[in-house]
Amino acid sequence: MSGIITLTSDWKNSDYYIGAIKARIMARFPDTKFVDITHNIESYSISQAAFIVKNAYKEFPKGSIHIIAVYSEPDKNGKILVIQDHEQYFILNDNVSASLIFDTEPQKVVLIETGFGFEGASFTEYSIFSQLALFILKEGDISELGNISKEYKKTPELLPQLESDTINGEVIYIDSFGNAITNIHIDFFNENVADSQFEVLLNSNFYKSKKIHNGYKQVDKGEIVCLFNSIGLLEIAIREGNASQLLSLKRESEIRVKYNL
C-alpha cells in the first residue's frame, strides 16, 4: 500500500471539509500522504471531475486511493462505489463518474448500500468515504464491503462522429488558461485526415485554422493555435490569451475538422 490518498472535489478552499477528512484519516494513519488533485471543480460537475481524475490517476503509484468528492451524497436508494483497477482504488458516488473515468470495465467494482453510517449521512466524504479509505489502508479486501457487480450507473463516452469528410467533435473541458480541449484524439484525426488538407472550424465556421502546431509559441501573440496536447486530444488555444473567452468556446461547443479539401 502506497499510503497516498488523493482528493478531488468541488469544495474550493474556504470550508472546513478538506481539513476534516484529512484529520480523520491521519488520526489513524498519521503517515498518510495526501495529494490535492484539485478542489476547484465546478459545483456538481461530474464530467469535469471525471476528466481530471481520468488524466491524473495513472501517474500515481500502485496502492493509491482516490477519493472523488463531487456530487457525493447518494440519492434515495443510491449506492457508493469502491473500485479497484490498475492496482489503485477509487471511492465515489454511483453517479456515472466511473464510466467516464475508465475506458474499459474496471477490474473490481463493489456497490455499497448499507453500513458505514450510510443512513442519514450528510457529509458523506467524512462519515463514509474516510472509513472506506481507512479500511483499504488496513489492507482489507474490498470484496467484504458490499456486492461485486457491474450494475452501476453508466453513460456513453462522447466520441467524435464522421460525416462527409468531416469530423464532428466538441469541447469537453476548458482549462484554467481558457484553452478548449476537445474529444478529438490524435489517432482518430490521423486515421481519417492523414495527409490531406484540412480546416479546423470553430464557432459555426466563424474562426478557422489550417494547421496543427507542436507548441503554443509557434504562432504570434494573440493568434489561434491548434495542437494535440499531452493526453493526445485536440486543443484550441490563443497564444497568451483566453480562447474560451475570445472565441466564445465552452463545454459542448462544436468543433469540426473538414478534410480532403
Rank of each mutant, 00 (worst) to 15 (best):
I236M: 06
Y89I: 01
E119R: 09
L202H: 00
L162K: 09
V53Y: 14
I37T: 15
E87H: 15
K33C: 08
S122P: 07
N77H: 11
S204N: 15
K62M: 08
S64G: 02
A69P: 14
A98H: 04
I68E: 05
L233N: 10
N214C: 08
N205I: 08
A56S: 15
S164I: 11
N179L: 10
I18Y: 11
D103C: 03
T6I: 05
S99P: 00
D220T: 14
S149K: 13
E223W: 10
F90Y: 09
K250D: 11
V35C: 08
K221I: 15
N77F: 10
N192F: 12
D36A: 06
G146A: 00
S9M: 06
I184G: 04
G241S: 09
A27W: 07
F29W: 08
T155F: 08
I238C: 12
F90E: 11
N55K: 06
D31H: 14
Y126D: 13
D175Q: 01
V53W: 14
T8I: 10
N77L: 08
E73M: 09
K22H: 07
S47Q: 11
E163S: 12
I68D: 08
S176K: 14
V82Q: 05
F34V: 04
S47N: 09
S122H: 15
I236S: 01
N168F: 04
V225R: 06
V110N: 11
